[in-house]
């Protein structure tokens, strides 16, 4: 474990907590893409499937973190699609999730480190996570704005994988460890946030709201 990975995971936990707080406090999921949250839940379940297969006692923080990620993302989907369904902005959350899931599944079958079920599921979850934020960014471009709290969520979510890139550089240099699939997907994922990062740093940090040119 190195500082970049630690802060990456903390940033990821912060993003999940910020979103849950926003929905719970405002009792509304306006401006939040339910599809992105569904895709994240699929990512966690397919990536941490080993938790279900051979459940081992929660002997380390990693198992606890995986359970937190899975339960928090499923709970977020429950809030969006059930509890606060009336506030879900369905007609703006219109990016076709199939256009993300099918290519990720296809690519996972073509490019992977080992052709076995668990490895393919892990690879699928890595590819899917890289593009899972697209429906959320698409929704913001459709509505033309993002609530400040949602911007903080996106900043934390984007920073998590950006910090992981630093973690991979660190591990390559000091541990000669390299996981090419995770690195390439993580770089793609972070690049997708660049436009948002620019808006966040030039606007939200100065207290303005993000309003996209309509």
């Amino acid at each position: 474990m190195n500082i970049f990975r630690l802060f990456g995971d903390l940033s990821h936990l912060a993003a999940i907590a910020i979103l849950l707080l926003k929905i719970w406090k405002t009792r509304s999921c306006a401006g939040v893409s339910g599809k992105t949250q569904l895709l994240f839940a699929v990512c966690f379940i397919t990536r941490y499937i080993d938790l279900f297969l051979h459940f081992v006692s929660l002997y380390n923080t990693e198992k606890v973190m995986k359970l937190i990620y899975i339960s928090a993302s499923v709970f977020t989907c429950y809030l969006i699609f059930f509890k606060f369904k009336a506030t879900y902005d369905g007609n703006h959350d219109s990016m076709r999730a199939e256009f993300l899931i099918v290519p990720a599944a296809g690519l996972a079958c073509l490019i992977n480190t080992k052709f076995d079920a668990i490895e393919i599921l892990w690879t699928f979850s890595i590819y899917l996570e890289a593009v899972a934020i697209l429906p959320q960014l698409f929704l913001i471009s459709k509505t033309g704005e993002a609530e400040t709290i949602t911007s903080h969520y996106l900043f934390a979510q984007g920073s998590y994988r950006a910090l992981y890139i630093l973690n991979w550089i660190y591990r390559y240099h000091y541990e000669s460890h390299v996981d090419t699939i995770a690195i390439v997907a993580g770089v793609v994922q972070t690049i997708l946030y660049c436009d948002f990062f620019y808006l966040y740093i030039t606007k939200v940090v100065k207290g303005q709201k993000i309003v996209l040119p309509a």
């Binding site: 990975r5 995971d9 990821h12 990693e62 973190m65 995986k66 990620y69 480190t113 892990w122 992981y164 973690n167 541990e175 000669s176 460890h177 390299v178 996981d179 090419t180 995770a182």
Partner: peptide
Amino acid sequence: CEMHESHDEL
């Protein structure tokens, strides 16, 4: 060298 162990990151 690429040490291929099971993916040990979240």
